[in-house]
Design a protein around this nucleic acid. Structure first.
Lengths: 211, 211
DNA sequence: ATGCGCTGTTCACTATAGGAAACGAGGTTT
DNA sequence: AAACCTCGTTTCCTATAGTGAACAGCGCAT
């Protein structure tokens, strides 16, 4: 098992189980949009080039539109695909969630090189993944491969001193209190150089396009 | 041959002509993904439930997949739709940026209640905003109003002890090493309760909708 | 070489999406 | 009320997406 896989796994666990396939009430959504603009089927037909009947069937889930049809829709209606697919244009989820993690109470994920402690893992659907890591690795060659994942990462050294190896830069020494922000698609790896294992706090961005 | 039908047809032809819409090289993109994972058509077939032949045709733009087919794809491949549709834009900017901030070298922004130190402020276009804050406020009533901004916020106490006031919850005591994740649209405010001013590290998400 | 196993493509057929026109339900005009 | 409009739905029919099987190409083993 490679370091990459380890961290990927941790991130994936943090990301939580996939909600599998949602029904994706496309027809319903289309009708919402149409009525919101007070358009008739004929209006939409003129805008999109799709037949009135076709639109009716799509709205009532009697057919599954072709991808070209979907394109005509998003194009003709002047909306983009996410808009068409996110039926519950809900704000509610943005308000008032909270997730406390007391010192040392995160969810631990040990690997040969790192010991991760996932923070705030009660909350699903969040846009950042924070975790504290004890860096056990002492030499770069303990990594079989670059650690690498989509998105961006912010990192602050809480304790000890580390060397940050990155794919495109010289190794960088970071002491307690130093912080760095980088694209995490660039290969990276941490090594402790202080007497005790170093501790860092990381925050990764979630893969985008969350609906 | 009624005038209505003629006009309808004319409009539909005009709309149906596809001059500008179709930058979506879906087949190409699918092939990219498949090869990136070193999957064979048969593998993808098993994952998605679509026939090998169908997949081949989709990859070669010989057919326009049904929306249900697209769903099977994104579902079976474990990707989401934006991923499937956005081949070109993601790659360029994601690779290799880096921004180091040594301890205490951030950009300071003092306010009556807080003393912020912005970290990694060299980098534009990043998805998280990290900053270290010295909490000067000693009582809740030093705030004239809730602090409130779009997005989400992660916060870890680095030093001292604070009280986190939030709009929808009771005040929460946080000691060094405790962390919390919350929707920052919910009003919030920090107060130091330790002898020295407390220090916290915060990371906020950037507003979305970059498009 | 011959045969085997695997790849991706192509064929022939079935299932279904898309379009034109007919239909039925309100609403407005006369 | 009948004669319309205009709306959305439904009914054919044709165009095409989706499938399984056959095919051609390639590496590998015998």
């Amino acid at each position: 098992m490679t370091a990459t896989t380890d961290q990927d796994a941790a991130l994936r666990i943090a990301a939580g189980r996939k909600p599998f396939v949602e029904p994706l009430r496309l027809g319903e959504r289309l009708k919402e949009i149409r009525l919101a603009h007070q358009w008739t089927l004929e209006d939409v037909s003129r805008r999109t080039g799709l037949a009135r009947s076709t639109l009716s069937k799509i709205e009532n889930d009697q057919i599954s539109p072709t991808f070209t049809a979907v394109q005509k829709l998003i194009n003709g209606l002047g909306i983009d695909l996410p808009q068409l697919l996110s039926p519950p244009r809900v704000q509610p989820r943005t308000m008032g969630r909270r997730d406390l993690t007391r010192r040392g109470e995160g969810q631990r994920h040990p690997t040969p090189t790192y010991e991760h402690e996932l923070l705030s893992c009660e909350l699903a659907q969040k846009r950042m993944i924070p975790f504290k890591t004890i860096v056990r690795a002492r030499a770069f060659d303990e990594f079989s491969e670059w650690v690498r994942h989509d998105g961006e990462e912010f990192l602050m050294v809480l304790d000890g001193e580390i060397l940050l190896f990155t794919e495109y830069y010289e190794p960088l020494a970071l002491a307690s209190g130093d912080s760095i922000y980088f694209d995490s698609a660039m290969g990276h790896a941490l090594v402790s150089v202080s007497d005790d294992d170093a501790v860092v706090l990381s925050v990764c961005t979630r893969g985008e396009s969350s609906t």
